[in-house]
């Protein structure tokens, strides 16, 4: 029984005077308890909108959500605001990209954590303070007792992200959703946060949805990876399968176009041509067709379905042949 089951999730943004915009379309995936699932894509791929929809954080007006999101037998999409808030506080934790704007600047860090503990775990003020210090200690903040009385602006980005993770973990959630949690941070700090996340996940058996544009992060962290393009999942595979034998031309192209630390100087990159804005509508065919080296007439006329193929899910008429992919992955 999956912890979280997303079925056919769709998000359409409607604004007066503009054409409705489909940000997410037919996204389905599930997360098992303790599993780490990656959602990878570039800007406009719909990965962040997906996470906001999961958390019920999209504006009620203007965003039309369809499909279903089942969390432990509860349908999240039909919950009332109050029920959802309660659920969100208790079972679902989240960590965002910008730790400064996610924290209240005029309230001490201690109060921001104890608030959650008092509300969702029914602790007394005193108990909550002890627990808060423990949480801060667990996420690696030095001298946690003192930190409780400080304000977010007194801390660096990395430390703030740790505070945010501590808040997310305060209620021992079963699922943690991390939306680009390290994008605003430096590499060495990113490494600290990622290792913290992966330790916490394995120690507490929390499931994690990792949303990122960085394939490197996914390669080290996730059991299962969903690659999104233009609002749909185009490939889903176990981590080794995906990186060593990518089949979708987009995934394949991405992997070939990023410079790698372990490739010698001068190793040529093979870029994907055009830019993210060169999409066609999924209704017309494959959104990636204008940029795809494998595109044929059928790609421009028939939308591909997400189908099981060789132990993975793939949305492509002309996937990359297996032989090519193996040599690439071996790098």
């Amino acid at each position: 029984m999956a912890l979280l089951d997303v079925r056919d999730l769709g998000v359409v943004f409607k604004r007066k005077g503009t054409r409705p915009f489909t940000a997410v379309d037919g996204v389905s995936f599930s997360v098992e308890p303790g599993q780490t699932v990656g959602l990878v894509g570039e800007s406009g791929s719909g990965k962040s909108v997906t996470s906001l929809a999961l958390m019920g954080l999209l504006p009620k007006r203007g965003a039309e959500i369809s499909g279903s999101v089942t969390f432990e037998d509860t349908e999240l999409l039909t919950l009332s605001d109050k029920q959802l808030r309660d659920r969100r506080g208790r079972d679902l934790g989240m960590v965002f990209q910008d730790p400064l704007s996610s924290l209240n600047p005029v309230i001490t860090i201690g109060l921001q954590i104890t608030e959650v503990l008092e509300r969702h775990r029914g602790m007394s003020r005193k108990e909550a303070r002890v627990e808060a210090a423990e949480l801060l200690d667990r996420v690696g903040l030095p001298d946690p007792q003192r930190r409780l009385d400080e304000y977010p602006h007194q801390h660096s980005g990395g430390m703030r992200q740790r505070v945010l993770i501590a808040i997310a973990l305060a209620c021992r959630p079963k699922l943690l959703i991390a939306d680009e949690p390290t994008t605003a941070l430096d590499v060495t700090i990113q490494a600290q946060i990622l290792s913290l996340l992966s330790d916490l996940v394995s120690e507490t058996d929390t499931a994690l949805i990792m949303i990122t544009h960085d394939l490197g992060i996914v390669a080290g962290l996730c059991d299962n990876v969903n690659v999104m393009y233009g609002g749909r999942i185009v490939e889903r595979a176990a981590r080794h399968d995906l990186f060593e034998r990518s089949r979708h031309p987009y995934t394949h192209g991405l992997l070939q176009s990023i410079p790698r630390l372990n490739a010698p100087r001068g190793e040529p990159l093979t870029p994907i041509r055009g830019s993210v804005s060169d999409n066609i509508e999924w209704e017309q065919g494959c959104a990636f067709a204008p940029r795809c080296p494998n595109a044929t007439d059928v790609c421009w006329s028939e939308p591909p379905e997400l189908k099981a193929d060789d132990g993975r899910m793939l949305r492509c008429h002309n996937p990359v042949a297996l032989g090519d992919a193996v040599t690439e992955g071996a790098l």
């Binding site: 060169d278 066609i280 017309q284 204008p290 007439d297 421009w300 006329s301």
Partner: peptide, 12 residues
């Protein structure tokens, strides 16, 4: 004319 070239024309 194939779909491809119509689409191409639109794009241009």
């Amino acid at each position: 004319m194939s779909i491809l070239s119509t689409r191409k024309a639109e794009k241009i």
